[in-house]
Amino acid sequence: MHMEERTERNSMMGDALKGAVAGALAVWVMDRFDWFDYHREDAETRERTNEVRPGGMDPAHVAANKVAEATGREMTPTDPHPAGQLVHYSLGIGPGALYGVLRHHYPVIKTGRGALYGLGLFIGQDEALNSLTGLAAKPQEYPWQDHARGLKQHLIYGLVMDSVLRVFDRATKK
C-alpha cells in the first residue's frame, strides 16, 4: 500500500469516527428536544401517535423487538429497553459517520450546515423506510404534529452533527 493510499484511508477512517461521535451527540441533543416537544403536545395527539405505532413503540424499539423475537428471546420491558436505545443511537451514528466522510468529497451535502442532510434522513428514514419495513405505521396514519416534530428533530440532528464536526475540524487544524 502506498503512503498516499494509507494517508487517505486513515483520513477517511478519522472522518468516519468523528462523524460517528458527532452523530451520537446529535441524537442525544435531538432526543432532549423531542421529549420536550412530545410532552407538550396535547394528550389526544400523543395518544393517536401511540395508537398507530406498532406495539405502541418507536421504530428503534420495534426493530430491537423483532430481532429479539427472531432469536427466540423476549425483551422485557419492550420499551424503553437498552437494545432499543442501541438501535436508536445506531441510526444516528451510522449516518453521522457517512456525513463525516462525504462532506469533504461532496460539499453540497453541507448545505444548510447539516440541515439538508437531516431533512434527507427525515424523508428517507422516518417518512419512507420505517413504514416500508413495518417499523412504523403508514405516514398518513400519524397526526400532522408527529411529522412536524420529526422534521424539527431531524433538522436539529443535522445542525448539531455539522456543528460538532466543525469544532473537530477547528481543533485539528491548530
Results as ranks from 00 to 15, higher is better:
residue 74 E to C: 08
residue 171 A to F: 03
residue 113 R to D: 15
residue 142 Y to R: 02
residue 140 Q to P: 00
residue 61 H to I: 03
residue 26 A to P: 04
residue 101 V to W: 02
residue 129 L to H: 00
residue 19 G to S: 02
residue 143 P to L: 10
residue 91 L to A: 09
residue 34 D to Y: 14
residue 73 R to W: 13
residue 171 A to D: 04
residue 40 R to T: 14
residue 149 R to Q: 14
residue 9 R to Y: 03
residue 72 G to T: 08
residue 148 A to K: 07
residue 26 A to E: 07
residue 32 R to Q: 15
residue 69 E to T: 13
residue 155 L to N: 02
residue 114 G to I: 00
residue 90 S to E: 05
residue 81 H to K: 06
residue 16 A to I: 07
residue 169 D to S: 13
residue 24 A to V: 11
residue 30 M to V: 01
residue 164 V to W: 07
residue 163 S to N: 11
residue 29 V to D: 04
residue 162 D to A: 12
residue 12 M to R: 13
residue 134 G to L: 12
residue 84 G to D: 13
residue 92 G to L: 01
residue 62 V to Y: 02
residue 93 I to R: 04
residue 69 E to P: 02
residue 1 M to I: 02
residue 20 A to L: 08
residue 144 W to G: 10
residue 58 D to N: 10
residue 141 E to M: 13
residue 3 M to V: 04
residue 174 K to Y: 01
residue 27 V to G: 04
residue 113 R to T: 07
residue 36 F to A: 15
residue 85 Q to T: 07
residue 58 D to A: 15
residue 94 G to N: 00
residue 92 G to H: 00
residue 41 E to M: 15
residue 63 A to I: 10
residue 169 D to C: 06
residue 38 Y to C: 06
residue 158 G to R: 01
residue 80 P to N: 13
residue 128 A to G: 00
residue 81 H to G: 05
residue 161 M to N: 08
residue 13 M to C: 02
residue 140 Q to F: 09
residue 44 E to A: 15
residue 20 A to P: 01
residue 4 E to L: 11
residue 3 M to P: 00
residue 141 E to P: 03
residue 137 A to I: 05
residue 70 A to M: 09
residue 28 W to R: 11
residue 17 L to I: 12
residue 114 G to T: 06
residue 3 M to Y: 08
residue 166 R to Q: 05
residue 142 Y to T: 02
residue 99 Y to E: 06
residue 163 S to T: 14
residue 9 R to T: 06
residue 71 T to D: 03
residue 59 P to H: 00
residue 88 H to F: 10
residue 127 E to Y: 09
residue 147 H to G: 08
residue 76 T to G: 01
residue 140 Q to K: 11
residue 52 V to D: 04
residue 12 M to L: 13
residue 109 I to W: 02
residue 3 M to G: 05
residue 119 L to E: 01
residue 174 K to C: 01
residue 24 A to Y: 08
residue 61 H to E: 10
residue 65 N to T: 13
residue 93 I to Y: 04
residue 31 D to L: 12
residue 80 P to H: 12
residue 93 I to L: 08
residue 8 E to G: 01
residue 121 L to K: 00
residue 88 H to E: 12
residue 135 L to A: 02
residue 80 P to A: 09
residue 68 A to K: 08
residue 58 D to I: 12
residue 55 G to W: 06
residue 50 N to S: 14
residue 67 V to M: 11
residue 40 R to P: 09
residue 166 R to C: 00
residue 72 G to N: 10
residue 71 T to P: 01
residue 29 V to P: 04
residue 140 Q to N: 12
residue 114 G to E: 06
residue 79 D to N: 09
residue 145 Q to Y: 00
residue 134 G to H: 10
residue 164 V to L: 11
residue 27 V to C: 13
residue 30 M to A: 14
